[in-house]
């Protein structure tokens, strides 16, 4: 009770800017709100509609593929790049800067770069493919490759942060453990497999959670790449689907219902992840 007065300012800010909007979204999801008229209570109709809506189900599938692909690749590549950044060498700072640079590039600038690189008719990527005797691709304009292209761009833009987190994790591993392994005759692979990677488990958990939550909420990338969720709904991430329904179609209540669903999904995934990690992650 003594701590309450000290916590009160922070709690008030949280209540006002976090919990109230959350409760308001839950309320709106149970109405027919469009922000233009007084909302009428309609119970679970928006939720019923959601699970019958082919657009929503497609968007959910696209988002799950996008989130797990980007997260999985960020863990694997982030760790690999973390190892690379941790190696001493004449170009260490350059390597670290190059790996982290895309993180600080604005999303709009990243979109311009990638729209040029992946231009089907005059982009350098297709020119390279053709020079190697490979067929060109339509990348963002082909329903079969658009999502993979968006995953690639998200990975390029985001992998620097996990790499830095892994670098910090690597630098926190006591040197004597590596040295003891070397004395015992462990190969670099064995040292990594049995000592370094297990000791990086807390970092992996952090990277996995941050990336998963971030990717499930993504929408800015779709906005700046101007795919509008297409072609044929192939890049319709849930975040963009919510935005489109709320601010293009005036369907605030339905968008709120999808937001609540996304929130519950992330709570469930977070819970699941911590349950799994209880058994597998060991903090020194």
């Amino acid at each position: 009770m003594e701590a309450l007065p000290y916590l009160l300012p922070a709690l008030l800010v949280f209540a006002l800017f976090e919990y109230y909007p959350l409760l308001r979204v839950i309320y709106l999801s149970l109405t027919d709100a469009d922000l233009l008229k007084s909302p009428q209570w309609i119970g679970l109709a928006n939720y019923t509609r959601m699970f019958q809506d082919a657009e929503f189900l497609n968007s959910l599938a696209v988002t799950v593929i996008f989130a797990f692909a980007v997260t999985g690749l960020e863990v694997v590549l982030g760790m690999t790049l973390g190892f690379l950044m941790n190696r001493k060498g004449p170009f260490q700072n350059l390597v670290r800067g190059a790996i982290f640079a895309p993180v600080v590039v604005s999303l709009a600038a990243a979109a311009v770069i990638w729209l040029h690189l992946l231009n089907p008719t005059s982009g350098p990527v297709n020119q390279l493919l053709q020079a190697l005797g490979l067929p060109p691709s339509r990348w963002l304009q082909d329903p079969s490759t658009a999502l993979a292209s968006v995953i690639l761009i998200a990975l390029w833009k985001g992998v620097g942060l996990p790499a830095v987190l892994y670098l910090a994790g690597l630098q926190g591993i006591p040197r004597e453990l590596q040295e003891a392994a070397q004395v015992d005759g462990a190969t670099p692979y064995q040292a990594a497999r049995w000592i370094t990677i297990p000791l990086l488990a807390p970092t992996t958990l952090l990277v996995f959670f941050i990336s998963l939550v971030g990717t499930f909420q993504s929408y800015g990338l779709i906005l700046v790449l101007r795919t509008d969720g297409g072609p044929v709904g192939s890049t319709m991430l849930l975040g963009y689907y919510i935005y489109q329904n709320a601010f293009q179609y005036f369907q605030m209540a339905y968008a709120s219902a999808v937001s609540v669903f996304l929130f519950l999904l992330l709570v469930f995934l977070g819970w699941l992840q911590f349950k799994v990690s209880e058994r597998r992650v060991h903090y020194r």
């Binding site: 231009n119 089907p120 008719t121 005059s122 982009g123 101007r226």
Partner: peptide, 8 residues
């Protein structure tokens, strides 16, 4: 038509 059509 796509986002690159004007450049093309």
């Amino acid at each position: 038509e796509n986002a690159n059509s004007t450049q093309d």
